[in-house]
Each structure stands twice: as C-alpha cells, then as structure tokens.
Amino acid sequence: MTEKTVAPAVKIGLELGPVFLFFLGYVTTRGQIYTIGGTEYTAFILLTAAFIPLMALATFVLWRLSGRLSKMQLVTLVMVVVFGGLTVWLNDDRFFKMKPTAIYGIFALLLGIGLLRGQSWLELVMEGALPLTHDGWMLLTKRLALMFLAMACANELVWRSFSTDMWVNFRTFGLPVALFGFFLLQARLFERYKSGTE
C-alpha cells in the first residue's frame, strides 16, 4: 500500500481516541458489577474487553489511511491484545494495569540495546522524521530510553500503590502529558543538533 499523509488531528484522534473512550466509559460505570453467564465482572473488565477491538479498529483505520504503521504502533497493539486478553480471560484487572509498564519497559530495552550497539533505533523507527544529526539522534535516544524507563516505573508505582480511579486518571492524562512534556523539553536539542548546523 502506498504511504499517504494523514492529518495530524486524525492521527492523534485514532491513537488516543480509544484511551479517552475507555476513560469516559470508566468514569460513567465505575463501581458497577455485571453478571454474565454466572460470572461477575467489574465495569473495568468489560471496558477492557471493548477496548481491545476498538484499539485494533483504530489501528486498522490508521493503516488504511496512511498506508503504514510504525513498529511502536504494532508493539502497542500486540501488548493491548495480550494484556487486555489476559485481563478479560482471567477476570483480573492487574494485567491491563501492567500493560503500560510492559510497553514502556520494552521500548526502553530496545532503545538501550540499539545504543549499546552504537545505533539509534529511534532514528530507524522514525525514519528521519526529525532533521537531526547522528549525535542528535543518539542523545535523543538516550533521553527517551530513560524517559520510557521512568514511565514504566511510575506506572508500576501508581497501579500497585493507589486506587483504580487514580490509575485510570494517571494512564489517561499523566503518561501522555509526561511524554508530550518530554518532547517539549527537547527543543534545545532539536535546535542544536539540527541537520546542517554542524
């Protein structure tokens, strides 16, 4: 399929839409218990069951519109299916809460392996989306690997130490805002290591 340009608002909507729909569903149904086939399920479990196909559909639509998916999008979808599936199958919300830890941990590990090999796998994944020199990509990769590791640790701390309400808010707003803030703070790096400035 030929790669096409997708409007940024549409791309963001498809990537974050399922997360916000999960949040809205949780806020309106939290604390409710549903009995299906003689088994009790919390609203969280049923929302997770709905989130899996919704995330798959959003990813499919993004692929149809753009003609491609990044490796990060594919890894995220696989983790949603695996951890979400375990959550529903075992009727245990801990697996879904562990999903961000696994995703960010895997990203940190992969970027770290690339760095140990003297490569910026982030540059390969982003396919030159940013006009950075090799040194710039290496520094950004180091920082992002540490950021992903910090986010994985923060997710573990929050889901293990606080209520489900707190975790849902943290997952919906805290983690995306932290990642957005991270990239805003890299403005000096982008300027200093812009291709053609060295």
Rank of each mutant, 00 (worst) to 15 (best):
L62C: 01
L62I: 00
W63T: 09
R64F: 05
L65T: 00
S66F: 02
G67T: 00
Q73A: 11
M79L: 15
V80Y: 01
F83W: 13
G84Y: 00
G85W: 05
L86V: 11
T87Y: 06
V88D: 02
W89R: 13
L90M: 14
D92M: 14
D92F: 14
D92Q: 15
D93T: 15
R94M: 15
F95W: 14
F95L: 15
K97P: 08
K97G: 07
K99T: 12
P100G: 07
T101E: 11
I103A: 08
I103F: 10
I106S: 11
L110T: 10
L111M: 02
G112F: 04
G112R: 04
G112N: 02
G114V: 03
L115H: 01
L116I: 14
R117A: 12
R117P: 04
G118Q: 07
Q119M: 12
S120A: 07
L122N: 00
L122E: 01
E123T: 07
E123G: 11
E123F: 08
M126R: 15
E127W: 05
E127A: 13
E127L: 06
L130A: 12
L130W: 04
P131A: 08
P131K: 11
T133M: 03
D135I: 05
G136V: 01
W137P: 08
M138L: 14
M138W: 08
T141K: 08
R143V: 11
R143G: 12
A145T: 00
M147F: 14
L149F: 00
M151D: 05
A154G: 05
L157V: 07
L157Q: 11
V158N: 04
W159R: 06
F162E: 05
F162T: 03
F162H: 05
S163M: 03
S163R: 09
S163C: 05
T164A: 03
D165C: 02
M166P: 05
N169R: 14
N169D: 11
R171V: 09
R171K: 13
R171E: 09
T172N: 10
G174W: 00
G174I: 01
L175S: 13
P176F: 05
L179Q: 08
G181E: 01
F183I: 02
L185M: 15
Q186F: 06
R188N: 14
R188I: 10
L189G: 09
L189D: 08
L189Y: 12
F190C: 12
R192V: 03
R192L: 08
K194C: 13
G196L: 03
G196K: 02
E198D: 09
E198L: 15
